[in-house]
């Protein structure tokens, strides 16, 4: 296994797995230990095919929706139209924090309203289609994810509404 992918979080979970595995073996015996192991293998087999297909799809999306396209969508527009655009853009922004935060920095510098940035970040985190398809559906199934998406739809607007008075007090972006 490539060592360069072993980050602190992986080490933490490795220690957790070893510790919990030992505890299961001592407290519940070898039968329970094997049971847990086969449960992990089962989940792996369930998730892996969806994950591989979803990552390939995510690869396509990232080549088709470049960052500057999202920047152009957003611009410095505000109001309901700006918020809706920010929410849609957030939901479509693929990739992890490496992709989203530099974009927000660029938006704030170019004069986008704080509430629009908040709507964008909220949409990216709770409505992110990429994450929903790659991660949430394999683990939780379609029904659960559909319900979660439905109740998450108003969240970017709610956050922006709460952010409006704060944005006025901040006067200009802090960064």
């Amino acid at each position: 296994m490539p060592l360069r992918h072993v980050d602190p979080m992986t080490v933490f979970f490795l220690v957790l797995a070893l510790g919990a595995g030992t505890a299961v073996y001592i407290l519940h015996g070898p039968a329970a230990w094997w049971n847990a192991l086969s449960r992990a293998a089962e989940l792996m087999l369930q998730v892996a095919p969806i994950l591989v297909a979803a990552l390939l799809m995510s690869g396509y999306v990232q080549t088709l929706i470049p960052r500057h396209a999202i920047e152009r969508w957003l611009g410095a527009r505000s109001g309901m139209r700006g918020l809706t655009l920010a929410t849609v853009a957030g939901a479509f922004t693929p990739g992890g924090p490496f992709a989203a935060f530099p974009l927000v920095v660029a938006l704030l510098r170019s004069g986008a309203a704080f509430e629009v940035c908040v709507a964008y970040l909220t949409a990216w985190s709770v409505l992110g289609l990429n994450r929903a398809l790659v991660w949430e559906i394999p683990f939780f199934g379609l029904d659960f994810v559909a319900l979660k998406m439905l109740v998450s739809l108003p969240l970017p607007f709610l956050a922006a509404l709460l952010a409006r008075p704060l944005g006025r007090r901040m006067r200009r972006p802090a960064c």
Binding site: P2, V6, L16, A17, A20, A36, A40, M44, V47
Partner: peptide, 14 residues
């Protein structure tokens, strides 16, 4: 390839 199996193992034991 490294992270997922480890996380699944930890979760299964937990």
């Amino acid at each position: 390839l490294t992270r997922l199996p480890i996380a699944l193992l930890a979760a299964a034991f937990l």
